[in-house]
Write a protein that binds this DNA or RNA. Structure first.
Lengths: 348, 348
DNA sequence: TCGGTGTCATGAATCGTTTCAACACTAGGT
DNA sequence: ACCTAGTGTTGAAACGATTCATGACACCGA
């Protein structure tokens, strides 16, 4: 049933070694032979068995990517950016969505290890990066995406979420808001905590501004709607006059609750700002102010950095004698700056 | 550097066969031995090499999934549904986005074949299913997702797009619209053509309704904005009084163009309906009417069907003698019904 | 004619796991 | 004491592509 190099070799009257060379080093084989072998391959419908190839090579031709949530257009864009760049480098991307759960993230990482991926891009679901550090120490380069390590242990491509949170909150304050509610969660997620931290800093500068926190279990539209409902049932006096949502999905949910299910006007009664600036932000009931992050570029850059890490790991292993590490000019922590995008939801 | 079963065997003072059994058939090994081997595994940080495992097994523990566009929340949901069900069955999902390009689709399918996946779920980018039929004939079960084959060659999980198109258009007509423009494309995509066909049928029943087509190169927000701009620049008299967009992304783009960049009111001047009913549809400037498809269920069902196909292929190969195929009770073409969701964009 | 040089092709060894026939040993029955 | 059944373990073969030392052959110049 299954045709292997051996069958192809017989059909083309050559040795298996030659078939392999046609596949991997065509320039080492006489043109006529190449043609004959390729015809045999086509005739027999031969498909290379990648498991055997990898087994021999000791490595695969793929990298792994674990994001927090496929359903979030921000991560979909990150994935696209990564995939495109990886394809350019001849690498396949194994993709996984952890849904913000550490166990699922771990399951994917284990799976990737078994696949002997060349490296892993991951947006960690929790603060505990130790397993990732261990993974890296064990020889699999790791690049954090949309997140930084506290120390220099891991390379990363991130956006300064504290600054983003600050920008968003500062903007609300500048628009005259004084009772701000931060909606987001879980707070075990670093990005969420950083954005909240940014908000706290902006508020700290002003004595007359209050910051309130509503923690939700996930960054989804559904949870946003829940959060909106929680705020709606409060009497008008105890409601905030502005909401900063930890991402656009939540903001969309809050907006649905306010504008469609309830009678709260945005931005008149309550201003609203989100985070990520996904494509839909500009098209919501009330166009959403947001903090833009260059999603695709983050994904693409993460792959570049991972390739550099892979090279570094390879060089470090091979040429320990020379001061190879000193020659490493590349920056291992790349940080993009977030950007405020003002739309109608904050009175823009 | 790399630790294998052999090293574990030595460390635990057992044979490699026993290590393998601890990994795959723990119940066949004495508890004390299991413990000793597992300790050795932990101590050495052994990670099973999946390439070797697959090589021996002849098959992998994964299935492939190719969708048209990761950026589309509809497909993100399909992927989620598929992934969850596959995980239940102990299978990993290799994921790819073709961006509606046949060459990219082909590249993914080839990659999956090399990985010896157990089966492939695919939303084909073109009409030409011959390569997929060939793939199936070569022993890799295939299930079409969100698309049906013309004959019974391939199993499928789909939604009747003609009916969906009909529902959408009928609704526009019922709302009093008479000059309808269908925005979508490329027409080489079957779903788009079917939805258009449904629209044509609804229009055909009425002599006083005109249907116009604006073909766009992709089903994205950006292209929707382009399409909206094309319509906006027309003088009011030659504009349609309703737009049926082939999916919600396009609809969102059209809406952005009309409501945010231009001065066309929805639904007063032009009614708008999309397709897929993604989460964001309810939250747009003017909440979007749409045709709902059960995305997650489609993904989950597709995996179920693929598992059935895999079993069928296995049985067909092994027990040809008996009338195994007759015993196959399962339906190979599963069709969900689309559902009209009326919101403000069509005056609901 | 001979040595030198380069081009092509060969095929056995190899990667790390799983499988399975064979074996060692124990416990229970007669 | 002997046989049977059952339980646990062994180790070599097999999976299929790649690698590489080896060799065959042709061509050129001396």
């Amino acid at each position: 049933m299954a045709v292997g190099v051996k069958d192809v070799a017989v059909a083309a009257s050559v040795s298996v070694g030659t078939v392999s060379n046609v596949l991997n080093n065509p320039e080492k084989v006489a043109p006529a032979t190449v043609a004959r072998v390729q015809k045999a391959i086509a005739d027999l419908g031969f498909v290379r068995n990648d498991a055997a190839r990898q087994l021999r090579a000791g490595r695969s031709r793929s990298i792994g990517l674990v994001v927090l949530d496929v359903g979030n257009p921000f991560f979909a864009d990150v994935a696209r950016g990564a995939e495109t760049r990886a394809a350019d480098a001849g690498l396949a991307v194994l993709f996984g969505s952890s849904d913000e759960r550490a166990d699922r993230e771990g399951a994917y990482v284990d799976l990737f290890r078994e696949q002997r991926v060349n490296g892993v891009l991951v947006t960690p679901a929790t603060d505990d990066l130790s397993s990732l550090v261990r993974l890296q120490d064990a020889g699999t380069p790791v690049v954090l995406v949309d997140r930084e390590a506290d120390d220099d242990a891991l390379a990363s491509v991130a956006v300064d979420d504290v600054e983003g949170g600050f920008l968003a909150t500062q903007h609300l304050i500048d628009s005259g808001r004084r009772r701000i509610t931060f909606v987001g969660g879980p707070l075990s997620t670093r990005q969420v905590r950083d954005r909240l931290e940014g908000a706290r800093r902006a508020v700290a500068e002003r004595a007359d501004v209050a910051l309130d926190v509503v923690e939700m279990p996930a960054l989804t539209v559904l949870q946003g709607r829940e959060a909106g409902n929680l705020l709606r049932v409060r009497d008008a006096a105890s409601r905030p006059d502005a909401v900063f949502a930890a991402n656009d999905l939540l903001a969309v949910g809050v907006l649905q609750s306010f504008a469609l299910l309830g009678d709260i006007r945005v931005p008149e009664d309550i201003a609203l700002i989100g985070y990520d600036d996904i494509d839909f932000a500009a098209a919501t009931v009330v166009p959403l102010s947001s903090i833009r992050q260059p999603a695709r570029e983050i994904g693409a850059t993460a792959v570049d950095l991972l390739l550099a890490e892979i090279a570094r790991a390879g060089a470090g292993g091979a040429g320990v004698a020379a001061g190879v590490i000193a020659a490493d000019t590349g920056e291992r922590r790349i940080r993009f700056r977030p950007e405020l995008v003002v739309r109608a939801s904050t009175g823009g």
